[in-house]
């Protein structure tokens, strides 16, 4: 049957075109379309916050420098992944990631929950000269990040574009995007002082993005907002946009290690 049908199709190029489109279209449609419509694909997390303009700029630098080629941001439901990196990643945690940066390779460790694990000083030193803090590291140095001033004047436009693809940035967030970026990278004291002149309003920043927003001179250089500030701000928020993962997985703890069950990766079997 298939041979007879094909025998007819291969005599007509448009039939072949149609056949290829239909046959190849099925798989993607069945797998992708339901992900947009089935509600429990992405968990509810009311505390989930959006990236601040500075963190978003840092995320762009993370992509620009190709960090994703060597670092994943996806902790799998395997026991050793959870023991090494923390609670396994939930879909909701990358809900506002356009695009996602789950990654495909771990030349370096996973970064999904690296936020808060190291100090700003450590990150800045590590990015400037990885081997000064981890002698055996094979990570490249990113010295130009401290030298480059961050472009902040267009951040409002970035927030608008993000809102157009579905991220709930408010009008106030968009309006104050540039000032918020400067404020987040300023010393808290200075930021408060600047608030009076409405150049950099740290108070407004925390109000808009939540109490957990870190205001810091990330790169240790208060004079200027550099690309290093942005990247470190981004690294420090990784895994801290919502508590959903910790909350859900702590609740599941009494059922004897959900991670172990899902992993199917018996510790005894892997010890050889």
């Amino acid at each position: 049957m298939i041979f007879n049908t094909h025998y007819k199709i291969e005599k007509r190029s448009l039939a072949l075109v149609l056949g290829i489109l239909v046959v190849s279209g099925i798989g993607g449609f069945v797998e992708i379309a339901p992900l947009f419509t089935i509600d429990d694909t992405v968990e509810e997390a009311p505390d989930m916050r959006v990236y601040t303009p500075l963190e978003l700029a840092g995320r762009h630098i993370y992509m620009r420098e190709g960090c994703y080629a060597c670092h994943s941001q996806m902790i799998r439901t395997l026991r050793d992944d959870v023991d090494r990196y923390g609670p396994y990643s939930l879909a909701v945690e990358s809900q506002y990631d356009h695009p996602m940066l789950w990654g495909s390779k771990r030349t370096g460790p996973d970064l999904a929950r690296v936020g808060g694990k190291y100090s700003d000083v450590w990150h800045t030193r590590h990015l400037n000269d990885p081997r000064s803090v981890v002698p055996q590291s094979i990570m490249p140095a990113y010295r130009w990040l401290s030298r480059n001033t961050l472009r902040v004047d267009d951040l409002g436009g970035h927030l608008v574009a993000m809102r157009r693809v579905g991220v709930p940035y408010s009008d106030a967030m968009i309006e104050h995007a540039t000032a918020d970026a400067i404020a987040q990278a300023s010393p808290p004291a200075l930021a408060a002082e600047a608030a009076a002149t409405d150049v950099a309003d740290a108070g407004g920043l925390v109000e808009r993005y939540g109490e957990a927003t870190t205001v810091s001179v990330f790169d240790g250089n208060p004079g200027v907002v550099t690309e290093m500030d942005a990247l470190v701000a981004y690294l420090q928020i990784l895994g801290r946009l919502t508590d959903a993962a910790t909350r859900l997985q702590d609740a599941a703890e009494p059922t004897a290690g959900l991670a172990l069950e899902l992993g199917g990766n018996e510790p005894g079997g892997s010890e050889q």
Partner: peptide
Amino acid sequence: SYSAFSGVQDAMTQWW
């Protein structure tokens, strides 16, 4: 530019 898709849907589209 910012991808039209995010998170899990973007991951599936990307690897599709």
